[in-house]
C-alpha cells in the first residue's frame, strides 16, 4: 500500500502553474526522486506535502488519512531544507532533540534517541557544538539527524546535496540511499541533478511547468523517454535539428517517420555514441552517421570531438579513446535505443 498518496494537486501563482494536476504515490520504503529544471514545480510539490503551500485543489493522504487541511505541525512528515536551516542559538543536541521535546518524551529517552541517531550518522562527537562551528557536510548530517530522529511517516528531502562539494556529494549519495533503506522510510527526494536522481531513486518523476511528464523507474525514464523534454533532460545528450521531407527524416543509414511538419529533433545519448573510422563496420545494429572532425579536446583518458554532419546544422559532441585528426572523415555510431526522434 502506498504510504503517501497525492491526488490531482493544483497550485497556481497567478498565471504560473506550479502544480498542474500532479498525482504521485510513494510506497513503504520507496525513494521517489522528483527532478526538473528550476521553476518546474518540484519544490512546490514537496512543500505542499509538508503543508507550507496551500493547494488550490487536490488531496494529500498519508496512510490513507487525508492531511490536506492539516497545519504543518500535525502532518508527521519531516522535511530536510536545502540550506539545512539549523538553529544557530542551539547546540547540535538541542537542534536534534527539539522535535522529541515537543513530543513530551522522558529526558532519558530523548538523550538515548539523539545519541543513537548521531551515532548512526557518525557525528556523535559534535553533540555540544553550535552550528556555526560545523563544516557544510557536518551541518548536512545534523539537519538529516534532526529530520529522522522523530521517526516521521514520510521523509522529504529538498536538494540535500546541492550545497556540498562535488567529491563529498558522490559518497553521501550512497550513504543517503543506505540510510533510507535501513530506516525503510518512504522518501521524496527533490533534485535538479538528473544523474543523482537516476542513481539513488526507486522511482523517478520528471516535472516541467507544473506537470509530471513521466513517472517510472530510472531505467524506464532513461531508456524510453515519453517526449523530447524528458529525453533531453535525462542523460548527457546532443540535440540535432533535422529537416522533414514528406513526413520523413533521413539521417545516416536510417529513415524515421515523424509527425512534425518542417523540422524534427533527434536526441543522441552522447555517452553511448562512438567515433569510428569512415569505413568501419560495427558489429551491432544502430545508427551510422558519416561526418567530419571539426574540433578536438584532450580530456586525459579520452578525446572530445566536435563532429559536423551533413543532415543538420548542429554539431555532435562525442568522446572517444582513439585519436583522429581534425578534418578526418569518420562515422558516428549510435547503438539502437540510444537515440530518439521527435
Amino acid at each position: 500500500m502506498a504510504i503517501l498518496e497525492t491526488r490531482n494537486l493544483k497550485k497556481y501563482y497567478g498565471r504560473v502553474r506550479a502544480l498542474d494536476d500532479v498525482s504521485i504515490d510513494v510506497d513503504a520504503g520507496e525513494l521517489l526522486a522528483v527532478i526538473g529544471p528550476s521553476g518546474s514545480g518540484k519544490t512546490t510539490f514537496l512543500r505542499s506535502i509538508a503543508g507550507f503551500v496551500k493547494l488550490d485543489a487536490g488531496h494529500v493522504y498519508i496512510e490513507g488519512k487525508d492531511i490536506t487541511e492539516l497545519p504543518p505541525e500535525k502532518r508527521d512528515v519531516s522535511m530536510f531544507f536545502q540550506n539545512y536551516a539549523l538553529w544557530p542559538h542551539m547546540t547540535v543536541f538541542d537542534n536534534v532533540a527539539y522535535g522529541l521535546k515537543l513530543r513530551k518524551m522522558p529526558k532519558e529517552e530523548i538523550e538515548k534517541r539523539v545519541h543513537d541517531v548521531l551515532k548512526l550518522l557518525d557525528i556523535e562527537e559534535l553533540v555540544d557544538r553550535k552550528p556555526s562551528q560545523l563544516s557544510g557536510g557536518q551541518q548536512q548530517r545534523v539537519a538529516l539527524a534532526r529530520a529522522i530522529v522523530v521517526k516521521p511517516k514520510v521523509l522529504l528531502l529538498d536538494e540535500p546535496l546541492s550545497n556540498l562539494d562535488a567529491k563529498i556529494r558522490l559518497r553521501i549519495r550512497f550513504e543517503i540511499k543506505a540510510l533510507q533503506q535501513k530506516l525503510n522510510l518512504p522518501t521524496v527526494y527533490v533534485t535538479h541533478d538528473q544523474e543523482e536522481a537516476l542513481s539513488i531513486a526507486d522511482k523517478v518523476a520528471v516535472m516541467h511547468e507544473g506537470k509530471v511528464l513521466q513517472l517510472g523507474t530510472p531505467e524506464e525514464v532513461y531508456k524510453s523517454p515519453v517526449n523530447f523534454f524528458v529525453a533531453d533532460f535525462i542523460g548527457t545528450n546532443c540535440v540535432l535539428t533535422l529537416k522533414v521531407l514528406d513526413g520523413r527524416v533521413k539521417i545516416g543509414n536510417k529513415i524515421f517517420e515523424v509527425s512534425s511538419k518542417e523540422t524534427a529533433r533527434m536526441v543522441v545519448r552522447s555517452d553511448e555514441a562512438e567515433v569510428l573510422e569512415a569505413r568501419a563496420e560495427p558489429g551491432k545494429d544502430g545508427l551510422r552517421i558519416p561526418g567530419e572532425i571539426k574540433g578536438k579536446l584532450y580530456m586525459g583518458s579520452k578525446y572530445r570531438y566536435e563532429i559536423r554532419i551533413e543532415e543538420s546544422e548542429d554539431a555532435l559532441f562525442v568522446n572517444s579513446g582513439e585519436s583522429f585528426k581534425i578534418g578526418e572523415k569518420i562515422t558516428v555510431f549510435v547503438p539502437d535505443g540510444s537515440y530518439f526522434v521527435y
Partner: peptide, 12 residues
C-alpha cells in the same frame, strides 16, 4: 526556514 523547520517538527 528556521521557523518552518520547527513547524515541520511539530511546533505550533
Amino acid at each position: 526556514e528556521l521557523e518552518q523547520v520547527a513547524r515541520n517538527l511539530g511546533a505550533s
